[in-house]
Simulated assay, not measured.
Amino acid sequence: MKKIFIAILMLPALAFSQVGGITTGSGTSYNTIFNPNTEIDKSEEFKELAPKMYITTSYLAANVDDIVETFFLRYNMYRDEMEFSKNDQLLYLKKINDRTIVFQNLNTKYKLFELNNDLKYFIVHNEGKNQLLSRQTVTYQEEKPPVNSYVAGKKADFIRNDDIFYIKFDNNSIIEVPSNKRKFYAIFDGKESEIKNYMKSNRLNNKDLEDLKKIVTYFNSL
């Protein structure tokens, strides 16, 4: 299984032809929106493992930026890519800073922001000048053979990680939410005491999604 998976990651992007000439219903060329992806391994072993790379294995209706047409996408957490299938080609949505993807039925908004000099997909949890974001990720766990007859081995697998929360401040800096409360107060430069008092009076936890939404919304009101 390990060899199969590595082969998938190392395949050159030659298996698919270019997507030029295909147009959306609104007349937009697909090659301005998507990049061709490498060929997907269709072995039974990979089929069993692959679904764990995705939030949902189905392609769901989504809006991209201000493009009129609805696209059917799915988010690949492992590769951090939005996937699209067209004419038996698997395509990746091109990454552009501030690009917005809204999944209609999930009522979930993703945006592309730069983190550590690389564009990453974040879920946006609130509107306003300062935004609460989160990242969804999985880690690939390689196959582990049995140590001996008493210790069983482990199959290769994708392990879902806890979501990581960030705050995007109005100066465009993106800071990971600290778990330590003292460090958490400190990221609200100049408003530490207000945030501390608000959290204490409302019994809010900086590790809880709903509480973090309230904190960032309050911060936006200051």
Rank of each mutant, 00 (worst) to 15 (best):
E48H: 11
L133T: 09
Y110I: 09
V64G: 05
P146L: 04
I175N: 00
K183T: 05
F84V: 10
Y92I: 07
I164L: 15
F122S: 08
I167S: 03
K154Y: 11
N87R: 14
Y166L: 01
D118P: 00
D162I: 00
V147A: 14
D80V: 09
I101W: 06
L93Y: 10
N116R: 08
G153K: 04
K155Y: 08
L91G: 05
A186I: 00
F84E: 10
F169A: 02
L49K: 05
P51W: 06
R160W: 02
K168V: 00
D65T: 06
I159N: 14
S149Y: 14
F169H: 07
D157T: 07
Y121S: 15
F169I: 10
Y166P: 03
L93R: 02
Y150V: 14
K168Y: 02
D80A: 05
E127N: 14
K47L: 12
Y59E: 11
S134H: 04
T70P: 02
T70R: 07
A62F: 04
L132Q: 03
I174T: 09
L90K: 12
E45R: 04
Q104V: 13
P178S: 00
F165C: 03
T57P: 06
M77Q: 15
E142N: 14
N161I: 06
E44W: 10
T57R: 14
Q89F: 05
F184C: 01
F103A: 09
Q141E: 11
E44D: 12
Q141W: 06
A62R: 00
E69S: 12
N171A: 06
M53K: 15
N76H: 04
E45Y: 12
Y121I: 02
D65A: 07
H125V: 00
K95I: 04
V64T: 06
N117E: 13
K111W: 05
A156R: 02
F158R: 02
E45A: 15
F169K: 03
F46D: 07
F122Y: 04
Y166D: 05
Q104N: 15
I187Q: 03
K183C: 01
V102M: 12
R79W: 14
F103M: 10
N76I: 05
G153T: 01
F122M: 01
K120T: 09
Y140L: 13
F169V: 10
Y121V: 02
V177E: 02
Y140G: 05
L93H: 03
E127M: 11
L91H: 08
I96A: 11
N172W: 13
N148F: 08
V138N: 01
R160Q: 12
R79I: 05
F103P: 03
R99Q: 13
Y75G: 03
A62L: 07
V68H: 15
L112W: 11
H125P: 01
G128Q: 09
F46T: 08
Q131I: 02
F113K: 08
K95M: 11
D162W: 00
L73Y: 11
L112R: 13
R135W: 02
G128T: 01
L133A: 07
K183H: 12
M53E: 10
Y54R: 10
Y121R: 04
